[in-house]
Write a protein that binds this DNA or RNA. Structure first.
Lengths: 196, 196
DNA sequence: GTCTATATTGCGATAGAC
DNA sequence: GTCTATCGCAATATAGAC
């Protein structure tokens, strides 16, 4: 059964803007193009957004909130440190691939935000990285992982997922599940966690 | 002894433009700003560049050529596959950190190029990735490495170096050499190469 | 090579009618 | 909420004097 869900204008605008920002970049995208893609004229946009920059901030803040929620959910079970880390990595990688466009914007367009708006996004990002770092350190303390430097391990995991967001497209050489499986293995190898 | 080397206007313009493109993005940087940073007025720029886009292409093409040259040089010695891979990784990581700004531009501003200019850069990038891939496969054939998927290993190495280019600044928590050493170790762990 | 001046275009944002 | 019209500004690129 197909449900027809009415999306609010604000939702449509955010989705179309994200698509355009991904394809052409924030600065290279005009609000006239966003309006056209949303079935509106440029003047009407301002009934739904405060400014072009605020629109970008909503997109970037939203994706970080969703990412954080997705990982928190994934690790919310009883299990040892490695089991939870493995679950976090899988969710982390899957999220970055599935929502590649918004993730890419979140990384490429940080410079396009004013300093205060950028600080909001960076704070969310830092919170997320600490969550991963805790899992790594926990695995290290339990002697389940050989931690070289927790912070750099986090960076490595973030780097891999971010990179995937730049090239992943459904229907490629590998399925999403295969990619997630392989990258999770590589990540755990970096920690010298014995393969299952 | 300090040598005063006269740089050509074209060189100054490229260097200043790279700095500005890194800080603010290509689209957000005006040629007036590039001119001012180069000690010129905007009209005079056109005695040295064809167009703003061509200036970007020169920067992006140049960094790829330099990267390729640097890695070719690093692996040009007699040694087994792992020794050469290790040398390639160290050069790869060091280059990305030392020339972080241009590397960052090379990744963030691909979208800002026209399709034909983009193809030029992508071809160079592909050639570079094949070079790394060959080293990995060679190590695998020699049973010196446990290769999961050569292409994804390359992506993983590229991802790590690219990510470093986004945050590395001299004078941070770790020296460049320490960072290179750790990341090289992590990379070789992904291939299950025994640590030296 | 440098400069000033300008042509042309498109931008974000707003005003005000409906 | 939608629209049309427009303001004020800044962009790339060019022309032509020196």
């Amino acid at each position: 059964m197909t449900e027809l869900v009415e999306r609010s204008s604000a939702e449509v605008i955010r989705a179309e803007a994200a698509k355009l920002f991904f394809e052409r970049g924030y600065d290279a995208t005009s609000l006239r193009q966003v309006a056209a893609a949303s079935g509106l004229r440029v003047g009407s946009l301002y009934n739904h957004i405060d400014s072009k920059e605020h629109l970008l901030l909503q997109i970037m803040g939203g994706i970080m909130d969703d990412l954080m929620g997705s990982i928190r959910l994934a690790i919310d079970f009883d299990g040892d440190a490695v089991a939870r880390l493995r679950a976090a990595l899988a969710a982390h990688l899957k999220f970055h691939a599935e929502r590649a466009q918004e993730v890419f914007i979140g990384n490429a367009e940080l410079r396009s935000l004013s300093e205060q708006a950028r600080d909001v996004v960076i704070a969310k990002r830092h919170e997320y990285e600490l969550l991963l770092q805790d899992l790594i350190e926990e695995a290290g303390r339990a002697s389940l992982a050989d931690v070289v430097d927790a912070r750099l391990h986090v960076y490595s995991f973030v780097a891999q997922a971010t990179h995937i967001a730049g090239w992943f497209k459904p229907g490629g050489r590998m399925s999403l599940d295969e990619i997630v499986e392989i990258y999770t293995r590589l990540a755990l190898r970096e920690l010298k966690v014995p393969e299952a």
